[in-house]
Design a protein around this nucleic acid. Structure first.
Length: 577
DNA sequence: TTGGAAACTTAGCATAGGATGT
DNA sequence: ACATCCTATGCTAAGTTTCCAA
């Protein structure tokens, strides 16, 4: 079954089929493929699409310094436009943002400009800002023909640069456009916010492709930094970004074979954890009693990672990024211990900023041994000391790897997310089709809450809720009227039947609206997409759809169906995670 | 053998663009 | 036909894990 499904999905052509049959007949394929690390045999692409060059402002749009108009050099002007475009954002008022911006802006100025422009407060960007607002208005107001023309040009670019050939398949590339220059805005309280993210040029670009492929051409008069032929990696293009000095990549779309296969493998690893999670849990519970402090710390950390789906928590360089933590990097100040709280014993209160500076707040009762250990870990420490001072992610993952091949901290998140979805779907789904999606979303929501996937409530949330409520009220009135008609229409049989039908139809519509309202309200601050895309084994959802006769389109949109094509082909209604 | 770099996954937000209502 | 609303998509930052050179 798996065999044929896979073939129909992946094996378009004969050569490829041979490769897959090798895989299908021999489970060592994965190991071989991944231990020798070869990711592809052939790779050809057209290289990246660069950001459009800077277009200087028209002469009537002026920058003012100290109240007087001032013509800027193109370099300085460009950076000024970045700032002017952000004027409406709160962060242009933040000290760090302004300080970083001004420092980097000055680097782009001529010496004359530098001498003159010494105070950001004296800079007036409003005319520039208005100009860009005007441009975006104009873009919105374009005629159909103009919009179509742009759309066609985008499509042409996509067809030319958006695909590559990897091992006999034309595959979609994820991000073939180079990130345009601008002002860096990190998430949360980022020390580098406002810094200039510089323009990427051909000489910054490393191309990766097959030796025997047609190499991408750099724009006329330019050169690539390097062309290499490394088939042990999956990226096509890379460059070094100037804010953190990290490398950025152009890679394939999630619909590609190489990503799909990896995704599948991820869920298979999580399913292997399912088989031995009892043993591992017994182990860490045992380790809570260990004589060795480092073993006890490790065991408590794994418990948190398992029970609360915390991230591993790598160390971060201070001052380079926002101050956020995960499990291993928790500090004393991030938890509070309550021997007794609201009728529960041994309660731990977590309050810290996690990835993307999203707050994690949770009060959980824990086992007595965990509680006692935490008290011990916190003894004689300052608030900003590490809670787990004998532990880091490398030590932790090394230990996990010993417990199970391929086990790392994030596998627990994947496992717990997927198993929770499966359980919740079993519990919540009732046979009534029109509430099935609500059940699904609720199961999805349980996972999102576990993983702390939050979102800012949409700006228009209140409004949209009101609109929906108005619709519901209107529908209620309509129902009341229909019921009245029904009472009045007792006389003749046909009218009675029609009226009954009408009442029923309206009742159904009303229920649908009410379900929609419930769903939306419950979703106010919770993001479902992240878990759906990254943590939930799609085969669970596919199986659920098959079991309840729900069209897959109801839960996965087009992009998601493309990403999960492997699972849609593979999973039958009896799939068990 | 280890620490930093490289590679790759996960993340929320902005907005484009399509659906829906008027 | 147009305005409004909502969802899908693009974007790129921020994580985790793996890799590899010293």
């Amino acid at each position: 079954m798996i065999r044929s499904a896979l073939m129909s999905y992946f094996c378009g052509i004969i050569e490829f089929l041979i490769g897959w049959c090798y895989f299908l007949d021999d489970s060592r394929w994965e190991e071989e493929r991944y231990t020798d690390g070869v990711k592809w045999k052939f790779l050809e692409h057209k290289g990246p699409v660069f950001a459009p060059p800077y277009e200087p402002l028209p002469s009537n749009v002026k920058f003012y310094y100290d109240g007087k108009p001032m013509k800027l050099s193109p370099e300085a002007e460009e950076v000024a436009t970045f700032f002017s475009k952000m004027l409406d954002h709160e962060y242009t008022t933040k000290d760090i943002f302004r300080k970083n911006f001004f420092k980097d802006w000055r680097k782009e100025m001529t010496s004359e400009e530098k001498a003159k422009i010494t105070d950001l407060k004296k800079c007036n960007f409003t005319e520039m800002s208005e100009y860009f607002k005007g441009l975006s208005e104009a873009r919105k107001a374009m005629t159909k023909e103009q919009k179509l023309k742009i759309k066609e040009e985008n499509e042409r670019l996509l067809q030319e640069y958006g695909f590559c050939i990897m091992d006999n398949h034309r595959e979609r590339i994820a991000n073939f456009r180079i990130e345009p220059p601008g002002l860096f805005r990190g998430r949360g309280d980022h020390p580098k916010m406002g810094m200039l993210k510089r323009r990427i040029r051909p000489q910054d670009i490393i191309i990766n492709c097959s030796k025997n492929s047609k190499h991408p051409e750099p724009p006329p008069g330019t050169k690539w930094k390097e062309v290499r032929h490394d088939n042990k990696v999956t990226w096509l293009v890379s460059w070094t970004e100037n804010i953190q000095g990290s490398i950025k990549y152009i890679m394939l779309n999630p619909s590609s074979r190489i990503k799909g296969e990896k995704d599948w493998q991820k869920y298979e690893t999580a399913r292997r954890l399912k088989k031995c999670v009892d043993r591992i849990r017994a182990q860490y519970r045992e380790d809570w009693k260990s004589k060795e402090m480092r073993v006890r710390q490790r065991a408590v950390a794994i418990y948190f990672i398992d029970k609360l789906a915390l991230r591993a928590g790598n160390e971060k360089e201070e001052g380079e990024t926002a101050d956020t933590v995960g499990c291993c990097s928790l500090r004393v100040e991030h938890i509070k211990l309550y021997p007794e709280n609201e009728g529960q014993e041994y309660v731990v209160e977590f309050d810290f900023l996690g990835k993307d500076s999203i707050r994690y707040y949770n009060k959980v009762p824990v086992e007595k041994r965990v509680f006692k250990n935490l008290q011990l870990f916190m003894e004689n420490k300052e608030p900003d000391d590490d809670l787990f001072d004998r532990l880091n992610t490398s030590v932790l993952n090394k230990h996990l790897q010993e417990l199970m091949d391929g086990l790392s901290a994030k596998v627990f998140r994947t496992y717990n997310a997927s198993i929770t979805l499966q359980q919740q779907l079993k519990e919540l789904t009732n046979a009534l089709e029109n509430t099935a999606i609500l059940s699904y979303n609720r199961a999805n929501r349980a996972v999102a809450i576990l993983c702390n996937h939050q979102r800012a409530p949409p700006k228009t949330f209140e409004k949209s809720m009101q609109n929906l409520q108005a619709k519901i009220d209107a529908k209620r009135d309509q129902l009341a009227n229909a019921k009245r008609d029904l009472k009045a229409a007792k006389a003749d049989a046909k009218g009675l039947r029609d009226d009954k039908k009408a009442v029923q139809r309206i009742e159904e519509q009303l229920m649908k609206l009410e379900v929609q309202a419930t769903d939306r309200e419950e979703n106010k601050q919770i993001a479902l997409g992240t878990s759906k895309l990254n943590y939930l084994d799609p085969r669970i959802s596919v199986a659920w759809c098959k079991k309840w006769g729900i069209p897959i389109e109801k839960i996965y949109n087009k992009t998601q169906r493309e990403k999960f094509a492997w699972a849609i082909d593979m999973a039958e209604k009896d799939f068990e995670f």
